[in-house]
Design a protein around this nucleic acid. Sequence first.
RNA 1: CGGGAUGUGGCGCAGUUUGGCUAGCGCGCUUGCCUUGGGAGCAAGAGGCCGGGGGUUCAAAUCCCUCCAUCCCGACCA
Length: 570
Amino acid sequence: MRASQLFIPTLREVPAEAEVISHKLLLRAGFIRKAAAGVYTLLPLAWRVIKKIEQIVREEMDREGGQEIMMPVIQPAELWQESGRWDVYGPELFRLKDRHGRDFCLGPTHEEIITDLVRHEISSYRQLPRLLYQIQNKYRDERRPRFGLMRGREFIMKDLYSFDRDTAGLDESYKKMYGAYTRIFQRCGLRFRPVEADSGAIGGKDTHEFMVLAESGEATVLFCPQESCGYAANDERAETPPDLWTAGGEPAPLQEASTPGSHTVAQVTAALGVDPRQIIKTMLYRTEQGVVAALVRGDREVNEIKLQKAANVLRLELADASTVRQITGARVGFAGPVGLPGVKIIADREVMALVNAVAGANRDETHLINVNPGRDFTPHLVTDLCLARAGDPCPHCGAPLEAARGIEVGQVFKLGEKYSRALNATYVDENGQTRYMVMGCYGIGVTRTMAAAIEQNHDQNGIIWPVSIAPYQAVVVPVSNKEPAHMALAEKVYRDLAAAGMEVVLDDRDERPGVKFKDADLIGYPLRLTIGNRTVESGQVEVRRRGGGETVPVPVDDVVETVRQILAQS
RNA sequence: CGGGAUGUGGCGCAGUUUGGCUAGCGCGCUUGCCUUGGGAGCAAGAGGCCGGGGGUUCAAAUCCCUCCAUCCCGACCA
């Protein structure tokens, strides 16, 4: 393509709305434009990148036996009511009504639709397993869309759904997808890490997230630095072997201490001169089964996912000030487990190891000292409630875990029978028995993958596309489009490359060379071929790799082969 | 959802506090000349319901009310 004909509206200045680098560069380099908050038009360059990522995804899905289908974006409420998610999904679900007043939603995911399809069309074990996938727009009315394509309200997802006869079959499908995902992100040129994750709202058992490592990532992952171990999990999932620290000593009599104004751990440690680990932090949560108190050591934070599981509740939210007052009789910051009636108390293991600890007294401006778990209060349950952090021991090998930020670009789930039961998706096995299908679902955020690639591959001048997903592989830049010798050679090089099957742009715009170079760097073509006075007389072309590498003169007749080799190596 | 900020040609901004006369600047855009190895120069132009609605006033980008949009921060660790 000729740059003079291409729709690539680059910007010299950064639009004020962009925060992260991928958003800034996508706007500046002319890849995207915003239509509404979290909703974008993908311009030709972005669409080319998306199609390349999609193609990689397709090839790897097909290789594992996946079959592509297209499902509706608009989904009837009935199916969501049948699965129970119409009420559970909350305000993130885009809801709408048709002219008759019937309820619909814009699909944030397609378990309902596909399970409905499969229950009607598949009835025998002979038809299983089935792996069906789609690549299309999905919708979530995010409470806060941000970071451009990283957290949009409309985005492109690949979702594959597996239907198996039993859990052994599911394990097989899961393994296939895990392998496919590893290949996909490798082929996209990304530095990533699969981590153990929590299944969250979609429900299910095993799950891994594929995290692209980048500072701008919204998720925290913890991983074991020991290569032989390889443990990695997100911070919500990571198990925390208990640190049974104790100040020791003999249990002393319970006492009250006046702690005016000390409603945080830091303030209490300062007021009483104790180690934060000596404090029992009491967090009150509202659930559909009443208020639950979570106890963790003062230096720890509550992991709400673990708490939710331990409490076996569906909904969990931190109690507001008036609820705290009602339960404890005190303002926020003075809750404690001693004499806390009518509240289910769940304690972390580390709390139980403490001797003569400090806790809120359930009275304003007062704490208790010499609190001894087991003597002064007895939790209903003791378990792991800690949010993991760097430095915690690896649950497998004990080495201190390291933390990193990650962008979640893919997730693989074992759903089990959750949806097949809810929607009655059954088959008849070889013994004539009716059984529920066993499902898995496997998503990749395609638009987010594009953004993540930029987060990981850029410099101060612009994007540095991995060759496999670059919108074009090379740009040919004649230094002057008024110089017949430059243009003639540029045209030849351009045609030769195109004839050899390369995706190449000829920058034939009537611009000064500086402008073309700046745009080439900004857009991030992996290769730039420059034609100017320095080499044109000797019949050479300068070849330069984006993102490092020197400018190398190459004889015209060798250009195609040289480019082919460089691209093959990348 | 809570808090904060912003909304002025395509982009980035000034002007608003202290109402006033043709609403400015840089970039981009158009035309011409000139120039061509890292976002050139000169000249002449085009382009603005000052986010919407309502109000105050002789007079509103500027003051008041209201709505909308966008961005940021937070969403509670007791």
